[in-house]
Computed example of a mutant assay.
Amino acid sequence: MPLGSLFSARLRWSLAGLGLAVLVLTAASMVVTGEHPLHAAYVTLLDLFAINDPIGHGRARQILQLLNGLIGLLILPVLVAATLEAFGTFRSASTLRRPPRGLAGHVVLLGLGKIGTRVLARLHEMNVPVVCVEEDPEARGIPLARRLKVPCVIGDVTDEGVLEAAKIGRASALLAVTSVDATNLEAALYARSLHPLLRVSLRLFDDDFATAVYRTLRAAHPGALTRSRSVSSLAAPAFAGAMMGRQVLGAIPVERRVLLFAALDVAGRAELEGRTVAEAFRPGSWRVIALDTSGPAERSADLASPGGQGGGGLVWDLHPGYVLRPGDRVVLAATRHGLGSLLGRRRREDGTRASGA
């Protein structure tokens, strides 16, 4: 462990000053007595620790002995301070840091569960200063915060003084990502009462509740930036995509909605087959954005995987007058309801044909 991490700068300067004083006294003893440097240093140390006999003659030597005794008295409190600082350093190595004085422009992260831990790691990678607030000292993200030396406040955020200890008044943003909606909302409201222009991002479970909170906070604090997101709502497209197989290529959250990208065969879809790209466009539901030009035998089941475009490729600049043929496969940008409508109609039509046969 480096010396700088054990002792404070003030203590290091004190030790250096005392060491320099001992060297000066040793040199003075050499000049006065004419002794060998090693013997002069030995006599000086005896005088420092007050274990040498008093000098009966030689005024200069007596003055040196008195000075050595005075320096020896100064050494004792410095040694005690060094011992206490070293002990405190070793003990604090296994404890959490407290927010330093004067901290400003940081992000207050509320909750160090599964999501909070990932957010903390990402913010640290981006070199964003963070102060964490967590009620459970055994939470998942506590070891990570300790390892990254991120300041933490252990306590219930709804208790008075906890957010103040995290320097919320000088923070740039609040990320409330605990698993309890009421805690996140209460923390956001209290933080806004202390810092009206604070940027706030809330994690909420119910999407309707998240929408209501967003509108209320935006109306109450129009000059501040507010975001509330339902994690379950944002994760729903990924689960839906997994259930649909390889049709859904990805999902992008846009404000309070999710935009899906899916690969669909044109054959058997009345909304697409025989229509131009412009005619197939349904505002608010779906839009054709690309055409897979690979042949039916060369097509991969997953366009999102490397090499998934087979021997052809994707044409992105489709002419609005291009007529979609039964053998085509297209990439759509669609809402959840729009994609569900396309897939649902196809299943209903297939079921009707099967029952008629």
Rank of each mutant, 00 (worst) to 15 (best):
N68L: 10
A176Y: 06
A171G: 05
P129G: 10
P283M: 03
R336A: 12
D207N: 14
A187Q: 00
I51F: 05
R192P: 01
H36N: 11
G313F: 07
G274Y: 03
G72S: 10
V331Q: 01
R192W: 01
G116H: 07
R269W: 03
D302I: 07
L163G: 01
Q65V: 09
L189Q: 03
G113V: 10
H36M: 04
P54M: 02
D47I: 03
A40S: 12
L64D: 05
A82Y: 03
L38N: 00
L73H: 05
V323T: 10
H39R: 12
W286D: 03
D207P: 13
G284K: 02
A86Q: 12
L45N: 12
G312V: 06
A173G: 07
A176C: 07
G34K: 01
S94A: 14
L45R: 15
R61C: 01
A270R: 14
G312A: 06
D292G: 14
T276R: 13
V248P: 04
A224H: 03
G321Y: 10
T293A: 10
S193P: 02
T216V: 10
T293R: 13
A187V: 01
L11P: 04
A219T: 15
A304M: 08
E135F: 12
V266C: 08
A220L: 15
D181W: 04
V200A: 01
L198K: 02
S341M: 05
I289Y: 06
G295Q: 12
P283V: 00
I252P: 00
L18I: 07
M1V: 06
S233I: 06
I51V: 11
A21S: 13
V119N: 03
V323L: 14
A165W: 00
V288R: 07
R353D: 09
F87P: 10
G241V: 09
T89Q: 13
V200F: 01
A21Y: 02
A187L: 01
E134H: 05
Q62D: 11
V254C: 08
V331P: 06
V200Q: 04
A263G: 06
I154V: 11
L70A: 12
D156A: 08
A242W: 08
T117I: 05
P37I: 04
D159I: 01
L96Q: 07
K114W: 06
G4K: 11
L272Q: 00
L20C: 11
G4L: 05
A187R: 00
D265A: 12
E35P: 00
G313D: 11
L204I: 13
L64K: 02
I55K: 15
V131L: 00
R345Q: 15
K149G: 08
L48C: 08
R122P: 09
T335N: 06
L234T: 11
L234C: 09
D350G: 02
T211K: 14
L110Q: 07
F87K: 15
D265W: 09
V200T: 04
G19H: 01
V153A: 04
A86T: 13
S172Y: 04
T95C: 11
P54S: 03
R336P: 14
L96F: 09
S201T: 15
A82I: 02
F90N: 15
E135V: 15
R353Q: 09
E271W: 08
